[in-house]
Structures are given as structure tokens and as C-alpha cells.
Write a protein that binds this DNA or RNA. Sequence first.
RNA 1: GCGGAGAUGGCCCAGCCUGGUAAGGCGAUAGACUGCUAAUCUAUUGUCCGCAAGGACUCGGGGGUUCGAAUCCCCCUCUCCGCGCCA
Length: 420
Amino acid sequence: MLDANIIRQDPDMVRSSLTDRLYSTDLLDSFLGTDLRWRETVDKNNRLKQVRNNVSMEIAGLSGEEKKTKIAEMKGLADQIKNLDTEISALDAERQEALLLIPNLVHSSVPVGKSAEDNVIVKTWMKEKCFTFKPKEHFEIGEDLDIIDFVRGAKVAGSGFYVLKGDGARLERALINFMLDMHNQQGYREVFPPILVNDESATGTGQLPKMRDDMYHLERDGLWLNPTAEVPVTNMHRDEIFENSELPIYYTAYLPSFRREAGRHSDTRGIARVHQFNKVEMVKFVHPDHSYEELRSLLLDAESVIQALELPYRVLLLCTGDMSFHAAKCYDIELHAPGGDRWLEASSCSNFTDFQARRARIKYRPEPHLKSEFLHTINGSGVALPRTMVAILENFQNEDGTVTIPKVLRPYMQGQETIG
RNA sequence: GCGGAGAUGGCCCAGCCUGGUAAGGCGAUAGACUGCUAAUCUAUUGUCCGCAAGGACUCGGGGGUUCGAAUCCCCCUCUCCGCGCCA
């Protein structure tokens, strides 16, 4: 959520940010109009309330006929105030609605562009792997080795779900432990939050109202299955104020995540795009002055996981048109999957600046006596499991159909060196 | 799920029965005073509107009654205690 004051002061800046992100500027105009009417009405009502407060004080000191007369006079005023209150809450709801749908302002270093094609490759690590045989795609490998079972997944929950079996399940568990251990060493505190989140949490990080259709909803209890650990982890501190000395705060969390992937029709084969997936996430709460440095270091922390796994990857700086609406700046890490010669997004590292903090009211106090201000939140996957699994299976496959286990994972698999 | 007790400013806590517009304390910061620290005194220490003067709002959340609600009524959330159920 943007600061209403900034929108009022510099609407043209907001307008150009919206345009760069390929958003309509209708929301901005609708906000400005409603906001003005809201402020006028609040002001008008405050004047009436001032009269009411003053007269009520007088009444307390009166008695008899005089008191009765005053009270009679006030009845009409009470009705007027009540009507204005109703009007104000309707206007406020309207302006909040617009405010919640306006995307974050883009950082000046973000390239302007329309689609994924305009993203900028800022780093490439390791050469794409060359094979002396034709590499298989991960779903073939998974089924040949009987470590991924799509049929059983579909039977249990439906299309878009799968079962990991035997060494597949163990590899998943090894990856989770390896990643958590690594992030622990990098200074992130491990947490295991609720998987279900309420409306306030989903609004706090920006999933609601815009992404409503992409989340699973439990109607009866009013809860959502988290689409990313970013939601519960960030919302742990909703409505909290930190002392400056407590920042920065780093968390890491392993959590299953759920996405309905409504309206998606391509990429249905395999485990690269599924409804339920594991992810190890990093979340930072930082001082606004340091958020871009913190983003860079978080990106490096995510990269180091992939480097340790010896997987070829590249880092993209997303353009304005391809960024999610709550990010001010975002890097994607893509893994190379040689089976289908594809690049798979395994991590998205974003600086949300004060966008989420304002929605979720997460503040810090610059100095003990000073007014609290919104801090900045940053997060990134470190990293998404299924796509890492795809990259491992496809990059480490051998001609005989077996898969070599990356060295760093072997301690997590009782020293086992291959699957199959 | 049932019964009981609670939720008050950054923190603690009074006020609620009997409606009159949030007392007091702690911590923090600034100033005063004092060889220094401490103590003491004074001020500041929630949100919104407003350039400002100023005003409005705020007692877990939402409704209602009233000229006026922390206080009375209704609904909801969370916490604690007991009971029930349960991996």
C-alpha cells in the first residue's frame, strides 16, 4: 500500500509508475477523487463533533429546564453526525479499496519493459550442461526410477498433485534440511509458522484483494492456504513496533505452499508447476536506509544454495511490466533444466520497501523518543523445492538412467551417492 | 464444544457496579538543578484531518442505546483457568 500523502503530493509520479507497470491509471484517479471527498466530509463532521463535545460539557453543568432545552437542541445534531459517519465510512472503504489495488512504486534502477522478454540477465553461473546422450525430462526420470508418482497424486488430490516416493521423498527432505541449515548459518532464524492464514494476514502482505482467485480458501473457517511462507512469516509481526537496535531481523522458514494456478493451461506436465509445493523462504525486516543492500545480500544467500548444489543458473533483474505488484525491485533466479532445455524460476527475491509494512502496520522507532516509522520488508525463496528437484534430476542424470546425488546433499542421505 | 475470568496508551495498572469525556506508575527522550553518575523537578512520549492555528478519533473488534459510552445492551476475536473431546 502506498502512502496516501505521497499520492496526494505527487500524483504524476504515481501515474508514471502505474504506466510503467502496465496498470491502468483509473485506480489512481478513483482514489484521488474519493480521498478528496473523504477529507472534506471528515472535516465537516469534525466541526459538528466539536460543537457536540462542547455542548455536552455544558449540559453536564446544567439542570432543570435549561438542561432539557439544550438536550432537545442536540438531538438534530446527533442525527447529522450519524449520517455523516455513515457517509465517511462508505467513502473510506472506497478509497481503501483503491489504495489496496495500487501497486508499489518501482525503484529507479528497474528497467522499463513490457514482458519477460525485457528482463535483464545480470549474472550467469556455470555453463549449461552438455550431455553425450539425449537427456531425459525430469518426469521421465522420476517415473523410470519410481520416485515421482503422478497417477497416485492425481488419485489422492487431483491433477497438479504428485507423490514423491522412496529416494525422491528422501531427496526432498534432504534438500529442506540442507537449505535450512545453510540459511541458519547465514544468520537467519528458523521459524515454522501456521500454514493457514486469515484475511488480515493475506491482506497484510498484499495477496488480498488482488490474488483472491489464486489462493485456496477454507470457507467454513475463513482461512486461506498460504501461497508462500512470506505471508505467515511477515505477518508474525503485524501491528508491532521494533526498536531500531532490534533491526535487521532475518527469518528462514520451510513451509508447504499452495496455489490454485487458476486459468493456467500450459506447463501442466511434471512438477514445475503444481498446486502444492515445498519452499524454504527467507524474510527480512530492515531499516529503510539499508533495504537495497539487504536485498543484494539476500539474493547472494539464495544463490549460494544453488551454487552449493552445483546447478547452472542465471539471475534476472525483472522489468517494470513483469514484477509482481507488491515489489519495488525484484530479481529472479532461474535454474537450467537440460531435459527440456528450459530456464525455471526457482527463486524470486524482492524488496517490498514499505508497501507490506504499511499494510501490516510493521514499524520501527528510529530513536526511543521519536515517532515510529514503517520499516522495509524483503524476501526471497531459498529456494523452491520442485524446480530444484527438476534441475537436480535433469542435470545429474547419467546415461544408465541413474541420478547422481549432489555432494552437499549426501550427508543428509546417509552418504548415498546415486539414485536408481 | 461447555462454564468462569480477562483484554485500557511503548510497558504496568486504576476507572466499569452508580454514563459526564482516560488517573497513577514504569521506561525512554529533552530541559532545569547538581563536581560526574544517581536523585529530584518540568515537558514530551497513540492515530487521523489541517500549511498552520486548531480539531477529531482512540480503552481487543464491530453494531446499538444516549445530548454524551472505557462505563449500559447485542454480536465477534483473542488470552488465562476448569471441564469435555482428541493426534
